[in-house]
Amino acid sequence: MTKKIRNLKELSLSNDRYEGANLMCPGCAHNIIVREVLNATDDPVVVANATGCLEVCTAVYPKTSWDTSWIHIGFENAAVAIAAVQTTYETLKKQGRLPKAAQKLADEGRDIKFVAFGGDGGTYDIGFQSLSGAFERGHNFMYVCLDNEVYANTGGQRSSSTPIGASTTTSPAGAVSYGEKMMKKSIVEIMADHGAPYVAQVSPSKWKDMIKKVQKGYEAKGPVFINAMSACTTEWRFASEDTIAVSDLGVDSCMWPLYEIINERDEHGIIYRTKLNITYRPKNKIPVEEYLAAQPRFKHLFKPENRHIIDLLQKAVDIRWENLQRREEAGV
């Protein structure tokens, strides 16, 4: 059942199902994302979590920060975990064996929503096989990647999501290195190419855009992938109060474009149209440099010998932005 949220005041009526006194860093975007995802619906939600910051900070015995059922098994299996929980729901519902409260809400048309959270390590890298398998099989769940472009939980090592030029603890900038050497993996397109009905990129700073996409995700039949920019005050090294400001710089520079890919499918699952919509167009597309300058992980790029990486990043961003617009226009 889609929750009506016309404005922020209406959203603020939500009774959070995620609790404070968790152990996340002050200013962590993960928490903001989790709240927006959970508050976008009033249907019951059940969560699986890959190993990572969110997992280790919200379920440290003897405390839980979840007011909704939650499971963590390992680093690489959040997708199959939620798929199996959802499969259990389907079979118990079919067999008439659901627990009473779940049955009652299901009778009201409020089926449980199944959500998995994973960081970029658990999503782009070690959990990718499980994620790809679960998407191919078409389970009905929403996978939310909390993308902070680094293994933050273990102290800031590079992942395949780390952008070129970022200094991390395993791709540090140094006398002869500008930091990370590889371009960021295009996870959104990869997941869309699995034929998923709905895939989107979001930023928690653009709350309305994000809530709308999460709601579309809840409504979709089949696996949904949401890639959420999760600005990391610790590993991106900005002050804790700047999380929203840095996120906005990412969006306004188009380093982190907001868009969605919809695979429209017929009743047999055949995709008859793929649509890409850009959901946010910055009034003034700011130079990438402004986004980079706000984060000390890129500080070394401003040395004369590394400036070419900034130029490279700008070029990559411009080409991608151009391509997104072309895909949108062409309706493919």
Partner: peptide
């Protein structure tokens, strides 16, 4: 909406105050 720690007390669309037990001071 942007508080990471569920520490802004808001009821019936009205801002009431800060929950100092859960606010980490970000």
């Amino acid at each position: 909406v942007f508080c990471p720690d569920i520490s802004i007390i808001s009821r019936d669309k009205k801002m009431i105050g800060v929950d100092y037990e859960h606010c980490k001071g970000c």
